[in-house]
Structures are given as structure tokens and as C-alpha cells.
Design a protein around this nucleic acid. Structure first.
Lengths: 203, 203
DNA sequence: TGTGCTAACAAACGGTACTTAGCATACCGT
DNA sequence: ACGGTATGCTAAGTACCGTTTGTTAGCACA
């Protein structure tokens, strides 16, 4: 048997598509034109195969969207957990939570664009499940602000309003960030976490 | 002749639709499901007529989108102009410009959602024209921040980054604001213009 | 009364979308 | 060498979409 064969099929004479490639191509096109604005024929064309052949690597167009969205949301919640765990100070928790959130939207632009544009195109029950997960992130961020206000180290009229502003500001990084632009993703993330602290009235 | 007949045809026995009603129904549905996600049959159904009858009041589905987008963008630029004219202080200019921008996104939610989601679905040359107009607003806002930094009353590392953050924060008000929620549009606009000043490092 | 306009309708067209079925071919382990 | 699996293809099915056409009913006005 082959001693160290990786899972990805990369034959000698024939280039072949795998399910990762399909997801990747779909992600690029969904991000550009939206879910309903993208035809599977375009995904197939990007991969150099005919449309029906896509079905060797996926179950349906809707499944592609569900995978993209749910993978992303899980990543966001995991980022959040890792960023704040073991940190007690609300100001530092807010800084770290917004930093990873901003960073993700700069480094995973396509996913972010799709999630924020096409979550409404998910079939039920996936749509409701997604909304619930996103609400969880929203509440967690708001909770940090509320703690900080209680502790006197943050100062806002409404934690809800501030957390909306912070989240959405980060989300839309995906709309303008370019990898070849003047800022690295880390620089943007640092700047934006600073903005977040200012919005939240950190002393 | 009827002494004071208004333009809107409202017959006695027959309910009739006008082009304003078509635009309004389309706006609601485009905002909910997106341009490509909305079928004209759904617009017709919302109006209580059959699909082909829509063509008595519009030229095409694309024309509906173009009207919505261009009306909105013109409104945004006009708001901006009126808000800052005659005001010299960059801090106050920034406050007023972001206030009207935020206010518009709270009071014209549907239009804002469509513009920010479906501008890419415009046919050329409308799409390029729109991008140009939006760039104009972006540059104008950035210019205010640059002035403020030069005058020493604002303080940011990058006016471009700050102006992106401020704009997009305001834009997304349309995503969560509810008329029957805990805040009025004016309250949100005031809060958000405060956030903008904090992002821009106003003293 | 009659004429023209507006706006509704039914029917149909051409196009395209997603998906399934059936089949051919290459690779792989045995 | 051989059978199974994976992957591609063509053809076709089913549904729906945006749009055009031709027609009809009511209203305004002469």
C-alpha cells in the first residue's frame, strides 16, 4: 500500500475535482453574486466540469450554503471562546473578542459575505438554527459590555446599541478589506478592537 | 368636471394599482429576500394582481431595482450636503454627517438593505455609476476626518479605516433597527454619531 | 352615444434553473 | 486480470421565471 497517501485525490494524468474544490468554487461565486444570483452552471464552469458532475461531490446547492454558513458560525463561536477564556477583565475580554471577530472577517471574507447576505436563503430548520447561534454570539458580546459598565471600566448608554455597532462594524470589514491593500489583517484587527473599546467608552 | 380630483386613480368598484404601489411592494420583498430571491409573481401576489399586469406600471424587474438604488443614493448625498453646509468645524461636520447617515438607515431600512445587498445585481452601466456615487460619499466623509486630524481636533491612525468603520456601522443599523423597538430612530442616530466621534478620536 | 385610455386578464414563449437517470471510463486493491 | 468505486459525460425531466401578446372591462370626456 502507498506509505503516506493523503486524502486529496491528485492523480497523475487526470485532474479531478473533489468536494473541497466544489465548496471553494461555490464560496467564491456566492460571495461575489449571492446565493440566488449564482447558478450551478457557473460553479461547474469555474471547475472545468459540466453541471451534473457537481452532484458527484455534493448533495444539493442548498447543502453547499448550509455547510458554508454553519462552518463559519461554529468558527466564530469557537474563536470567541478561545479568545476570552481565562481572561477576567471586561475591557481586555472585549478587546480580545472583537480582535478575533474582526480578524476572522478580514481573513475569511468570502464566508463572511455569504453569511451576512444569504443566511435568509437557508431552508428551515437551518435558518432558525443559524439565527439562534448568531444570537448567542451577540448576547455574549453584550454581556461583556454589561459587565464592564457594572465594573465602571466601560461606559455606554446602552450595551445593546454598542454591541450592535461593534459587531456590525467588524462584519463589514469583509466588504472592503483586500489582502493586497495597505493594511494586514492583523493591523486592521488591532485598529478595530481599539475602535470597539472607544465605542464602549473604555477609560 | 370633478373639482378636486387627485392623480391617484381610486375607482369605485375596482381596486387599482399604481407604479408607486408596485415599487413599494417590490421594495419590501427585495429587502426581505433579495433581488434574485424575489420573483415578480410574489410582487404581483402582494398587490393582488397577476404577474403580467405589473408591466402596466413598470418596464422591467431591473428597472425597479435601479429606481430603488439610485433614488436612495441620491438621497444620501443630498442628506450629506444639507447636513454639513455652512458648518466649518470638522468635529461638528462629522457629527452631523454621521447623524443623518445613521438616521436614514433607521428610517429607510428597506432601501438601505437593498442598496447594500443588491447593488451588484444592477446591469451595467448602472452598477458602475452607483459605485462611483457611493465612493463620492465615502471620500467626503474621509475628507472630514482628514481635516479634523490636521486641525488636531480628531485623532486616528488612518482616516480611511475610521471612515470605513463609521460608515459601515451606520449602514447596518438597517439590519437590526425596529420601529417598535426600545429606541427611536433619532435616539439611535444620536448615539451612533457619538460612536463615530469616539472612533475618530474626538477630544 | 361613442371614442380613447388605462389597467386588468389569460395564454403562451423562450430561457434557464436544479436535479435525476443512464452510461462510459479511469483508477485501485486484490 | 478483474470487479468495485469514483468521476465524468449526455440527455432529459420538471419547474419556474421574466416577458410579450392579444383581449376585455371600466372610466373620462366630448
Amino acid at each position: 500500500m502507498a506509505p503516506a497517501d493523503l486524502g486529496t485525490a491528485s492523480s497523475d494524468t487526470r485532474t479531478t475535482v473533489n468536494s473541497t474544490a466544489v465548496l471553494d468554487a461555490a464560496m467564491t461565486l456566492f460571495a461575489q453574486r449571492g446565493y440566488h444570483g449564482t447558478a450551478l452552471s457557473q460553479v461547474a464552469e469555474a471547475l472545468g466540469i459540466r453541471t451534473p458532475s457537481l452532484y458527484n461531490h455534493m448533495r444539493s446547492k442548498q447543502e453547499l450554503l448550509q455547510r458554508i454558513v454553519s462552518d463559519t458560525t461554529e468558527g466564530v463561536l469557537e474563536d470567541f471562546r478561545l479568545a476570552v477564556e481565562g481572561v477576567a477583565d471586561p475591557v481586555e475580554r472585549l478587546r480580545r473578542a472583537t480582535r478575533v471577530y474582526a480578524l476572522r472577517h478580514a481573513t475569511h471574507r468570502r464566508e463572511a459575505l455569504i453569511v451576512n447576505r444569504d443566511t435568509t436563503s437557508l431552508d428551515e430548520p437551518a435558518r432558525s438554527e443559524q439565527q439562534e447561534l448568531r444570537r448567542r454570539h451577540e448576547h455574549a458580546l453584550r454581556g461583556i459590555i454589561t459587565e464592564g459598565v457594572a465594573a465602571g471600566t466601560l461606559n455606554v448608554d446602552s450595551p445593546a446599541l454598542a454591541s450592535f455597532a461593534i459587531r456590525e462594524m467588524c462584519v463589514s470589514i469583509a466588504r472592503w478589506f483586500r489582502e493586497d491593500g495597505p493594511f494586514t489583517a492583523e493591523q486592521v484587527a488591532d485598529q478595530y478592537s481599539g475602535f470597539a473599546l472607544q465605542i464602549a467608552g473604555a477609560r
